[in-house]
Write a protein that binds this DNA or RNA. Structure first.
Lengths: 202, 202
DNA sequence: GAATTATCTCAACGACTGTTGAGTTTAATG
DNA sequence: CATTAAACTCAACAGTCGTTGAGATAATTC
């Protein structure tokens, strides 16, 4: 009964207008700034100069809109993976710089991470994203490291760096906000190095 | 016109019943488990077998109820302060143990901290609490340390440890949850020591 | 122009929230 | 017992939220 083998598409084509991208941009900024709960669909729609029901038609629900926002650009993920690979000598410094630059770079890269971080407490999807984010660091670390607890060490380092970013960008601890990147790297990098590549007792 | 100097109190006395404490206990558990937004006054009231308006009469608003929950027992704060004081030799280990035990101890001590952590993203009061919590660590560190950036170093160490606790107790990263305390101390303590008491280059 | 499909608008539903006010019951005083 | 003030109950308000459905407008093909 189905007569639609290689059916020719008719009618208006989807996606030609940039409205959908405008909605996504507005949602990304809002979710990063206000978090998941405080961000309302009506507010996102107003930012994008669109009706609220329009947002619901593009993305089917608030959760799916949030999921679209959290889709981390692959370039950022590659940046992390390459940071973990390589020689052990300056591993700590490379990892620290990767985390700090990812959260302080252009909004298109930092906002999805901020949205994930802010949403991780109230939204199960964001929590799972962050969990996998740290887990994938663990895998990279397990490949590179030789010690049997290399995965655990990489996860702890990742948690520490996420804690520092949270204090700076979400909690806003004044002294940490005021500190410049080089000062932070100078203090943190040796500690992360110690976690990832344990020094023999001395 | 005021005739109330040393007026004798009449009528029923407040606070004789333990209902108020039951409400506070229920609220503490809920805020720690579900966070600020997901915790509703009606739910807290149901947990304490009380009408919702009763909660509003005891504590004037949801924010004040939350503030009462976050009032950290002074014993926990003293535990942190004493951990930062003392000789530099095993400072890292003492501090790490203080953080881990505070978040894994009895509910009366850990739940206010969990409520603060979970609420810090959506509630301004919780965010300020956590900010001051880290700040007070900074002060303790500034007293003990000799380096000019001792306060910054103490703040970074505190952020790192909060990050680890968050990964374990809120995000629930499996490998970190499974790790036992002694293993964690063995890995983290040297790194925290490195942050607080920088080793000369070698 | 007719048909088809997507974009967009408008109004409303149903559920849930914090909060309030009036009224009832209970304990403590004179 | 009468009075006072607290503990407690019940019902409702006012606002916000995610979501839905019907219908108008616009683009694309035959």
């Amino acid at each position: 009964m189905k007569q639609s083998v290689a059916k020719v598409r008719r009618g208006r084509r989807p996606g030609t207008n940039s409205t959908q991208q405008a909605v996504l941009d507005a949602a990304r900024a809002r979710f990063a700034r206000d978090g998941f709960t405080a961000t309302t669909i009506r507010r996102v729609a107003a930012d994008a100069d669109v009706d609220a029901s329009q947002v619901m038609q593009f993305f089917r629900s608030k959760d799916e809109l949030f999921a679209a926002v959290m889709a981390i650009p692959s370039t950022a993920l590659d940046l992390f993976n390459t940071a973990f690979e390589g020689p052990d000598e300056h591993l700590g410094e490379r990892v620290v710089r990767a985390y700090l630059s990812a959260w302080e770079g252009a909004p298109e890269q930092s906002e999805p991470l901020m949205a994930m971080l802010r949403g991780a407490i109230v939204n199960e999807q964001a929590s799972e994203h962050l969990r996998e984010f740290i887990q994938s660091r663990l895998m990279s670390g397990a490949q590179a490291g030789t010690a049997p607890d290399a995965a655990l060490r990489a996860g702890l380092a990742s948690s520490m760096l996420v804690g520092i970013v949270t204090s700076r960008r979400i909690i806003g601890v004044p002294l940490l906000v005021a500190a410049d990147t080089e000062t932070l790297v100078g203090i943190i990098a040796p500690a992360i190095q110690q976690v990832l590549v344990p020094q023999p007792a001395f």
